[in-house]
Amino acid sequence: MEKKDNKLVNILRNQSQLIILILLVIVFSVTTPSFRTTGNFLNLLKQVTVIGVISCGMTLVVISGCLDLSVGSVFSLLNLVSISLQINNNFLGVIMPLVIAVFIGFFNGFIVTKFKVNSIIVTLGSLSLFSGLAQLVTNGAIISGVTGTWYGFIGREKLLGIPVHVYVFFIVAIISQVLLSNTAFGRKIKYVGTNDSAAEIAGIKSGRVRTIAFIISSLFVAIAALIYSSRMTTASPVAGAGYEFDAITAVVIGGTSLAGGKGSIFKTIIGVLLLALIVNILTLYNVMYSFQNIVKGILIIIAIIIDIRVRRRIEA
């Protein structure tokens, strides 16, 4: 009997976010008729794919002990690259963003690890760098691509009644979770995030591990940008503005520690859904858009406080 109690307490403690998510869904299903429609749930799922894919990559970077603030402007840049190439050649429009993403991820990772500098400051710099570059590509203008080709498959088609990009999100999430919990690389990310000098001594090349995490994160940003481009067939130099905070908020309120070393993709997905749910509710109740930022800011701080509290209790 006592054992059972402990188990329940453990679940409550480890999966508190999941429980909050379920409770919120139940509460709002009861109180808000417009919330419990299938259309709204599908809408919710459609809205989270882009930020969800970005958050999966961000989780890997955060677990490795870094942070990537440039994902938003990289998203805008790749969105523009994809659409401007897609006008002439669908194939290039898909391949080039992925290729460029590898270089961008390498650039961020290389500078952070080679010179051992704070990743927040570096990626704050690359945020400006890529945002300027994105605006330069089209001189700040919004461009439209060509609709009606296979390019729109990911964003606009449905399989078994569910949009294709929702499947893409699930595939990305499963791949990242497997990568994190079932491969040597996943273990290395956690070691490096927990204590990089100890990991070095154990023979792990921490710089290389972090750089790969940055590259994977950028690749996921490229996939997210492709989903968006495919769905909208337009590109704007500010398409991804603020996505870095959404992704970080999702990762943090999911329960992945900003200190690195711990976390999971599952937690991040809960975080993404939690965030989307709160935004969805605010929208349904016609709360001003700006209050979303207020709520997000408060959520980030609360999540950091909880994270540090829990870690101190474990250490003590």
């Binding site: 704070n118 927040i120 905070f245 970080i248 908020t249 900003l258 001003m288 858009y289 700006s290 209050f291 979303q292 930022n293 207020i294 709520v295 997000k296 800011g297 408060i298 980030i300 701080i301 950091i304 406080i305 540090i308």
Partner: peptide, 23 residues
């Protein structure tokens, strides 16, 4: 008082205050 890294805290207040300004 909560012994948190200022870089993370002010990331939060940055989003929060910007929301307040928009509001």
């Amino acid at each position: 008082k909560l012994k948190l890294p200022s870089i993370a805290v002010t990331l939060g207040t940055m989003v929060f205050v910007s929301g307040v300004v928009f509001a």
